[in-house]
């Protein structure tokens, strides 16, 4: 089994375009696809998957809740909340749920024990479906909910079960965005990491972070430069790859066809297999193919 994770640090550098096209090109290798980018899941839109075989509620969110029977309106909770998630509404403290992270500072200070931290509230959904390229697991978070390592791990476990059952041979993971736990969980256990970066300083700094995590898990990393012709004077990524002995396996040019492929709900390589970006992605896929038994 080979597990390929496509990661970039922060989003918006073309991770999904690359993941979806690579999935389409490697479908004959018997793959399962995981969209772990739960804050901005979009592979299902590119694959045009609308019906789900299974939808699992994901519960994790913690928020504070005030018991107004007990509350003596001392407003200490409001004073200690570093998030400013407690406001005074009609003379009573009120928790702004879209701000509150459930840290429990208010609960600790409440003199009359009127605050509860309610755990395991609904924070999103894990969905299992089919694409033309293989079985697919994705997730969507409710408004304002952060992605978590737990959610990513649960998604990946579904795909690993498919491998054990002989349903698929390999896993392609579109990594969660960010640099925290959810990325650690995306990277953990992967065989290869494709690190996608744009030729900018901020993207390079993300690249460093995800590379550090990949190294930690002894995952073999490769670099893909997206929109490589957008900033030709920038050689930071080349330098980084040389310093760390990392192979750049693709340089994808900026290509207007990418936006058009999205409006048509198709992976780029299927929408227009001859566009400049498609041709680069095909080279990346054939490189990967040789790594997959």
């Amino acid at each position: 089994m080979v597990e390929v994770v496509i990661a970039s640090g922060k989003g918006g550098v073309g991770k999904s375009t690359i993941s979806s096209s690579i999935s389409a090109l490697l479908s004959h290798k018997n793959i399962g696809i995981v969209d772990a980018d739960a804050e901005a899941p979009n592979l299902h839109l590119i694959f045009d998957t609308n019906s789900w075989e299974e939808e699992i509620e994901y519960k994790e969110k913690s928020v504070a809740a005030i018991d107004y029977e007990k509350c003596v309106n001392c407003s200490i909770c409001q004073e200690v909340c570093t998030y400013e998630a407690v406001e005074n509404r009609n003379g009573l403290p009120h928790i702004k749920e879209y701000i509150c992270e459930g840290c429990g500072a208010c609960k600790v200070v409440c003199p009359v024990d009127a605050v509860r931290i309610t755990k395991n509230n609904l924070s999103g959904w894990i969905r299992v479906g089919r694409t033309r390229y293989g079985p697919f697991v994705t997730s969507e978070l409710d408004v304002g909910q952060p992605n978590s390592g737990k959610l990513v791990t649960e998604e990946k476990n579904i795909a690993k079960k498919w491998v054990r059952e002989g349903k698929i041979k390999h896993i392609i993971v579109d990594s969660a965005a960010g640099i925290g736990c959810q990325v650690i969980a995306s990277m953990s256990g992967a065989t290869y990491a494709l690190l996608v970066a744009e030729p900018t300083e901020s993207s390079l700094s993300d690249l460093r972070r995800v590379f550090y995590l990949a190294e930690h898990f002894r995952t073999k990393s490769f670099i893909i430069i997206n929109k490589e012709n957008m900033n030709l004077g920038f050689n930071g990524i080349m330098k980084f790859s040389e310093e760390n002995d990392l192979e750049i396996i693709g340089k994808i040019p900026y290509d207007k066809t990418v936006a058009a492929s999205m409006t048509h709900k198709m992976p780029l390589v299927e929408y227009d297999g001859n566009s400049p970006a498609s041709r680069s992605i095909k080279e990346i896929a054939s490189f990967l193919e040789d790594l997959m038994p």
Binding site: I184, R208, R209, Y212, L213, A214, E215, H216, R218
Partner: peptide, 13 residues
């Protein structure tokens, strides 16, 4: 545990 990661920052370093 440390790999060859970047020589700065990084969780757990």
């Amino acid at each position: 545990g440390e790999g060859r990661g970047p020589g700065r920052g990084g969780q757990g370093r």
